[in-house]
Every structure is written in C-alpha cells, then in structure tokens.
Nucleic acid binder design. Structure first.
Lengths: 196, 196
DNA sequence: TGAATACGAACGTATGATCGTTTTTATAAA
DNA sequence: TTTATAAAAACGATCATACGTTCGTATTCA
C-alpha cells in the first residue's frame, strides 16, 4: 500500500488501526514492532508518529474504542425493551452477533490488558464493569419479578458472559452452524439455566 | 556410584519452566526474551541451552505438558463412573478445580497457539480435541439414555467448556465465593441447561 | 575423572522513539 | 485560473539497547 505525503491523515490512521489489530492479534502487543506496522501500512517507521502518540497510546485507543462502541451498541440493542425476559434474549443475540464480528478486538481486549499502563487499564476495566452491569441489571430485574431463579447474580452473569464470549473464539462463520442457529441454541441454554 | 542423570539439571529445568510460564503470561511468548528468562532463573542466556532446544521447543513443552496432564487427570477423575449425570457432575467439578489452579497454563494454551509452529500446533489441537470429546461423549451417552435433552452436542459442549474455562480467568480464590460454592452454582447452571 | 552444567563473548539484526528536512495538499487571495 | 502559504504528512538517518543462538572454555560434583 503506497501512500503519498500529505494524503488524508484520517485514512492513514484508519489503516494504522486496522493493521494494528491484525499485528497485535498475530504477535501480541509487545512483540508487534512499529516497523512491521509501518511496513504493512506503507510508511517509514518514523511517519507513524504523525498519527499516534506512542505505541501504548495506539493499544489504548484500539481497546478503548472497542469498549465504548460495545457499550453504545448494547444500549442501542436494548432500548425500549422493558420485559426482563425479552431483554435477556436481546442481550444474548446482540452479544453473540457483535462478538462474532470482532474476534480480534475481543481477543486483544482481554489478553492485552496486561500491556496497558495502570491508568489506562483502570479505564478499560471500568468500562468492562459497566457492560457486565447491563447483564446483572437484567438478571436482577428478572429475579425481582420472579421470572428468573438465580443463585448468585454476579457469578451467573460472569458465567453467561464467559459462555457467550468464549464461543466466539471458536465459532467459524463459514462452518456447519449458521448464526441464527447459534443464537437459538445459546438462548435456550441460557434461559434454561436461569428461568424459574 | 553413578551420577543421577541431570540431578541439578532437573531442578534448573523446572525453574526454567516455572519462570517461562510467568514471563509468557506477563509479556506473551514472542515478547518474552531469553535474557529475561535467564535472569529470573539466575543463569547466563547461553546456559539455557543446556536445558532447552530452542525457545519454540520450550513453548511447545509447556503447552504439551499442560494438555497431557489435563487429559490424564480428567480420565482419572471420571474413572469408574458410569451414569452420565454423575459423569457430567464429576467433569464440571474436575474442570473447574483443575483450571482454577492453572490460570497461566490455560491462558498460554489458548492465546499462544498462534506462536506454535504448524507441526506443534497440530499436536496440541489434536489433544484439545480429545479432551473436548470426553465431554461430548458424556453428553451423547446422557442424550442416548434420555437423561439429557440437547439440541446440538458439539455446540453445547463448546458452550459448557467456554463457560467453565472462562470463569477461571475471572475467579479469585481469595474473593467472596469459595470453590465449593462456585462448583455448585455452575453445576446447577449446566445441568439446567442440559437436563430433560 | 568424565559428564553435566555454567560462563561470557560474539554474531548480525531489530527495537521504540526523535528530529530536521522535504514533499504534498488544502485554502484563499490575486 | 493562477499563485502564495501554512499546515499536514512522509522521509530517512540516528540513538542506545536488546534480540536468539552458537561456541570454546571453565567449573562443579557424583
């Protein structure tokens, strides 16, 4: 990918982010070199610094952007639903769909928390906590209405999230199971584990 | 008196493995340097090569050892149990207990498959498949006896494994929940999702 | 005393980041 | 439509340091 001086910085930054996701996914953040990144984008190493502050800032930007978009999309998907059972179904379908399409981001967002500076890591963990709380809220409301029977809200929420997220590292969109079937099976599994 | 083959060498190799698990967990395999590893063990970099073949061999050794031990332990835990429901309960308890105690190995065993040479990766994936088949077998036998009602054996197995394994990356042994409670909650969650 | 183990220097190459310079582009005045 | 100009973006050299691995030699100890 050749790139001429002074060309659109927005496009270049987008290309850097995309290549960054690939390279971190392939090699891990620490092992990804800015020279590899520059080569893949079609730049000299030094030119990257016209678009990013530091390597660390790029990592934070990628993970932060993922979390913020995840939260906003979830709130979007749940908007206007008031019945906890419907909320739970919508959450499951949303979470699966969203995560299947962003395997790299999901992988990096969990495995590379270690590479974030403490200040940055705290921000991400807080966002993740907020997302988890969306599911906890659904479970709580369902339990309060005696629709769900849940031994421990937090543990159940973690278990559900672990199941739904974990499946995405395994799921092959071109495989035997189509997306709708995947969602159906998991909806049944979760509901049976939670319904009264 | 014959010299115990590698008497002090055995200890050194154990220390290398232990430090290796730590460092790969902290930095990722590619980013872990043999100089860091040597320093942590108290050796010069070159001396590592009295105990390992290459950096790649160390990674394979760590993951392979984990998988082989996992399989053997699982077969141990399931031995003599014939009722599918009891098998499933035993599997859940075993998997949780085993994985909680080996967070580093579990993390490395999934995130660093990317760093294994193809030949090595194939061996690990085959072992993982064998382990997954243990659970699939339990689910199949349970379904055949009409104890379980399962839409898709393989997907359900993946979902259960994802849930049980994922929880281990989150679980804090010193936290609010003790191990027995954790096992109880997950046993209930899984059984409800699977029982007829 | 001989095998196991450790040392320490060396190989060529790669690392994240900086900086002064050059090129390109967008904008607006002429 | 042409031209002037400043901001944006890319270049390319440079810094000190680190990389995995090899190898000849020295040390340790059953």
């Amino acid at each position: 990918m050749t790139r001429t001086a002074g060309s659109s910085g927005k496009k270049t930054l987008a290309a850097i982010r995309e290549a960054g996701l690939d390279l971190i996914h392939e090699h891990g953040f620490e092992a990804m070199s800015l020279r590899q990144l520059a080569t893949r984008v079609g730049l000299q190493p030094g030119s990257l610094y016209n678009h990013i502050e530091t390597k660390q800032d790029l990592l934070f930007d990628l993970i932060h952007n993922h979390m913020v978009t995840l939260l906003a999309s979830a709130d979007d998907a749940l908007e206007g639903i008031s019945d906890p059972l419907d909320e739970l179904k919508a959450f499951i379908a949303f979470h699966l769909t969203y995560h299947i399409e962003r395997k790299r981001e999901v992988f990096i967002g969990s495995s590379e928390l270690r590479s974030l500076e403490p200040k940055n890591r705290k921000k991400i963990v807080a966002l993740r906590r907020t997302y988890e709380d969306r599911l906890c809220g659904i479970l709580e409301r369902g339990a309060a209405k005696r629709l769900f029977k849940i031994e421990d809200i937090a543990v159940s929420a973690y278990a559900i999230l672990a199941m739904l997220t974990g499946i995405c590292t395994w799921y092959d969109a071109k495989g035997r199971i189509d997306r709708k079937t995947l969602i159906d099976i998991h909806t049944r599994l979760v509901l049976q584990g939670v319904l009264k």
